[in-house]
Amino acid sequence: MVDKHGKDDIVVVLGSPSAESAEVYARTVTEGDPSWVGPLAGISLGLPVFHILESEMKDQIDAKVYKEQVSIMESVLETDEIIQAMKNVRESVSV
């Protein structure tokens, strides 16, 4: 995928259910952390990565679409922890 499209215009968006899984995926796609599960495991990609629950994503998405597709999960998942985990990964890795 990355080989085909080049990596300048590619963004990864996650929908992980917990802070820990969000971090695992975020590290996998940024620094190639050896994630123990999933299709991207072991591939170092150096790609920008966000979680769909982060304001960086939410604020630019059509509000009606976001409400229909995602909003309920904000109150179901540990959203603050997920957001913090994503920030931690981005701060520890300069992409």
Binding site: S16, P17, S18, E20, S21, V24, W36, I72, S75, V76
Partner: peptide, 20 residues
């Protein structure tokens, strides 16, 4: 599941039911 980053599946389901 939670110890391996897969979240708490029943809790997520119950919270979803509660939200509806």
């Amino acid at each position: 599941t939670d110890t391996a980053g897969s979240g708490n599946v029943p809790r997520t389901n119950y919270r979803l039911i509660a939200a509806i």
